[in-house]
């Protein structure tokens, strides 16, 4: 069964190359399907007559904002609440109790790097909210960052569909932390007050984001090209405070270099960044662009 494609064939490969250039991620073999399904909605939102008009505009005029929107839409992940539950057990059973003595009377900051539509951010907030009785003297802030996208806008709004709230979210949490609004469910103010979101290109300089005691980047590393992995790992290290933790997915490892973390995980995918550790030399990998290049104009012609 072959799908009806609305773009010239060369555009699909050009979009695949653009995604690799801007985000360091290689789209899979199903990228024509992704382009058709995800970009059509974006084209409508951006006021284009159809998908073809939007892509024509991108490659003929080279609009930076549009390029980022398009790549973000292509990379949007299907996420669910409390995804990879073992990570939340590590967070609640090990990391928060370990960090509590250090941040008693203060604020502990958690970053969800690449938060997509926000389910992970709100899941962490629910966990933190339920542990308030255990750590009444520790304030917890959760920040989610990702490329600007429709998904991130929905995360900021805290609005989820009937189907989204039924994937991974126990019904008692739905009742306690959400309010029904028509067909959707909206996060309650008590939870929303604990979280914030920001637009951020994951491959760009992270210094403006500050540092965090826990940085979560779970289950994403394998999507990235080797050059982009090096860059991302450096950013994750810079974002993690001394004695802080990096949470990758349970299947992920930091690889051959330590990037300032202890090489041996304290739990599956979870690494500590000691105050003193020799950072192993990082062999300079092929550069990955942190800002949209101008060359993507007419890229589809290549």
């Amino acid at each position: 069964m072959s799908a009806v494609l609305s773009l010239e064939p060369s555009y699909y490969d050009a979009l695949k190359r653009l995604t690799l250039e801007l985000a360091g991620i290689t789209l899979g073999d199903d990228h024509t399907f992704l382009v058709e399904t995800r970009l059509s909605a974006l084209a409508r939102k951006e006021g284009f007559e159809n998908l073809s008009d939007m892509i024509d505009q991108l490659f003929s005029r080279g609009q930076t904002r549009l390029a980022i929107q398009i790549v973000s839409a292509l990379l949007e992940r299907a996420t669910q609440f409390f995804s990879d539950r073992s990570g939340f057990e590590i967070l609640g059973d090990k990391l928060l109790p370990t960090l509590h003595p250090l941040y008693r009377g203060g604020t502990l900051r958690i970053l969800c790097y690449g938060c997509s539509s926000g389910q992970e951010v709100y899941s962490v907030a629910i966990l933190a909210s339920r542990m308030k009785d255990v750590f009444p003297d520790m304030n917890i802030e959760i920040i989610g960052v990702d490329y600007p996208s429709l998904a991130l806008e929905r995360a900021k709004e805290g609005r989820f569909t009937h189907f989204e709230v039924q994937r991974g979210l126990p019904i008692r949490h739905l009742v306690d932390y959400f309010t029904r609004d028509g067909e959707d469910w909206v996060v309650n103010e008590s939870l929303r007050a604990m979280v914030s979101f920001a637009d951020h290109n994951l491959l760009s300089d992270p210094n403006s984001l500050g540092t965090y005691q826990i940085v979560m980047f779970r289950g994403r590393l394998s999507q990235y090209s080797p050059a982009a992995v090096v860059r991302i790992m450096r950013h994750l290290s810079a974002l993690t405070s001394a004695n802080g933790y990096l949470m990758l997915g349970s299947q992920d490892t930091i690889g051959k270099l330590n990037y300032g973390f202890e090489k041996k995980p304290i739990a599956l995918g979870c690494y500590v960044k000691p105050a003193e550790i020799k950072i192993e030399a990082v062999i300079e990998a092929a550069p990955v662009r942190s800002a949209p290049p101008v060359e993507y104009k007419d890229m589809y012609r290549a």
Binding site: Q80, H162, F163, Q166, R167, P170, I171
Partner: peptide, 25 residues
């Protein structure tokens, strides 16, 4: 939903549902 939970329900699925939702619940 609250009434169902208080009566002893363990979980709650809102129709329409799909296989992912049932598996998750």
């Amino acid at each position: 939903i609250t009434e169902a939970l208080e009566a002893g329900a363990n979980e709650y699925v809102m129709k329409p549902f799909d296989s992912d939702i049932l598996e998750s619940k």
